[in-house]
Amino acid sequence: MKKTIILLSLALVSWGAFAQHDHSKMGHSTEGHSNMDSKMENKTMVQSSVNVERSKSATAIIDNYLALKDALVADNSTKAASSGEKLFDAFEKFDISAQAKSQQKELAEIIEVASEHAEHISENSGSIDHQREHFEMLSKDIRDLTLITGSDRTLYQAFCPMYNNKEGGVWLSASSEIKNPFYGNKMLKCGSVQQEITVK
């Protein structure tokens, strides 16, 4: 009898250990992104401008990306997670086949990677630093995406030189006013507009 109980409790303990093992987030953090680009852009710091097609094809993606950005500006991890989920859905619904043939492969790659970031952000409510790491990488993908798909509004690419141990981080905003999503309230005004993405 005793032996049975000991055996059983051993089994339960090992079960527990692995359940825990399993729970541990396999999340990925993301630091040190956009090295060459951002380092170079950081040095020059000249505000440039790029012109893209006027198009509504990426509207849902841009809307939800900006909502995510606002949630991070407001230090709201829960909201960031729910925006991340909606952004993930927007990627799923995006119709690659409606885009130019020559760009479809590139777009599929961007969306594959960006969806992973959106998914991580949606799954990491409560750990805002981790969400921000993915947001930084995501921002670069969204920029590359809009350069191909076009945009329905002017976007501003801003740069915070302090983020990620001074490697810097970029984000997009619909306004030229700086509201830093990497630090939120801690350093709301840190950063500057690097590039304006205007619509034809």
Binding site: H28, T30, E31, G32, H33
Partner: peptide, 10 residues
């Protein structure tokens, strides 16, 4: 590149 960034930070 995305995975490398994540590996480094993890």
């Amino acid at each position: 590149q995305s995975k490398l960034t994540s590996m480094i930070s993890q």
